[in-house]
């Protein structure tokens, strides 16, 4: 492989990995608190369309990202109200959120199909961000650096802070956490809202950085891959980072093989690769005895204090 090809390939991997990393990091925190939100794909789409619409209207990408975080967090709040306050089934509600997100984003985005915005590109000077070699470090959207900082922050929060300890306690043993006076529902609401905001940034990454435009179902199932990634990582942030970049590499393989006119296998097979790889990885992880036992003990179970 020639050197000139290596830089763009590395950069594509980062681009493909970042949105699933962001979404998965949010879901990891949600699941650590004991809640399973299957609505990631729907929240990402709501974020993607909101981010695009606000950026197209105001011309400010950062404003678009903030709006996307708010919109996706609001949709997560709806999920929280149903599952936490009204104790609805988390699996069914998460599915409903995804179906809702697909429909709502298509509806809201109708007027924006075909429009373009400026890529939310690097904030570094062009001498760095467009340097033939150094752009592999400086040539990304600020969201990429944000995602890496957030991995560190979430890792630190969960393992080193008191609040993180409480969040994990709520996810591992809700009744004990409740009996020593912590608000299980309150903690879970915060986690669910955080997960929503993260999915919002992830969605924006597609509509403001990668494409950058709006199209129906722009995220093409990547939200589900993010969910699988959390299982793959065994609910640990650093392994999430490794996993996301691994998936990014698989997806990049597809893109570059297609671009190079690689004709040994059908392009449809390459397009199916990320999903097949996800299944294979899930099988390998789940088969191990310790695989699913890493999951937070209260994952997916509704909590209702018997008051």
């Amino acid at each position: 492989m020639t050197y000139s090809l290596l830089i763009p390939i590395l950069m594509t991997i980062v681009g493909a990995a970042t949105p699933i990393l962001l979404a998965a990091l949010g879901e990891l925190v949600v699941e650590k608190s004991g809640v399973l939100n299957l609505g990631v794909e729907g929240m990402m789409l709501i974020g993607a369309v909101t981010g695009f619409a606000v950026t197209a209207t105001t011309g400010s990408a950062p404003l678009g990202v903030i709006a996307a975080m708010i919109a996706s967090a609001a949709s997560a709040g709806l999920f929280g109200f149903l599952t936490l306050t009204l104790t609805a089934n988390q699996v069914a509600t998460g599915l409903a959120l995804t179906i809702f997100g697909i429909g709502l984003s298509a509806l809201a985005g109708e007027g924006y199909v075909g429009q373009t915005v400026d890529v939310f590109g690097s904030v570094f000077p062009a001498s760095l961000s467009e340097h033939p070699t150094l752009r592999v470090i400086f040539g990304y959207s600020p969201l990429v650096y944000l995602s890496l900082a957030l991995v560190a922050a979430v890792g630190w929060f969960l393992s080193r802070t008191r609040a993180g300890l409480i969040l994990r306690a709520v996810g591992e043993s809700d009744l004990s956490a409740h009996s020593i006076g912590y608000s299980v529902i309150g903690v879970r609401y915060m986690a669910v809202l955080f997960g929503g905001a993260m999915a919002g940034i992830a969605g924006c990454f597609y509509s403001l950085v990668l494409t950058p435009m709006w199209a129906e179902q722009l995220t093409a199932g990547r939200g589900w891959i993010a969910l699988a990634l959390v299982v793959f990582a065994g609910w640990r942030p650093v392994r999430l980072l490794l996993g996301a970049y691994l998936f990014g590499a698989v997806m990049t393989l597809e893109l570059h093989a297609k671009a190079a006119g690689f004709s040994l296998v059908a392009p449809e097979f390459l397009a199916a690769m990320p999903y097949l790889a996800t299944i294979a990885v899930l099988a390998a992880i789940s088969a191990r005895k310790t695989g699913m036992s890493l999951a937070p003990a209260c994952l997916g179970k509704p909590f209702k204090p018997s008051s």
Partner: peptide, 12 residues
Amino acid sequence: AATGVFQAMMLF
């Protein structure tokens, strides 16, 4: 797309 929104609202 409104149809999908109505259908999802029903489930919600």
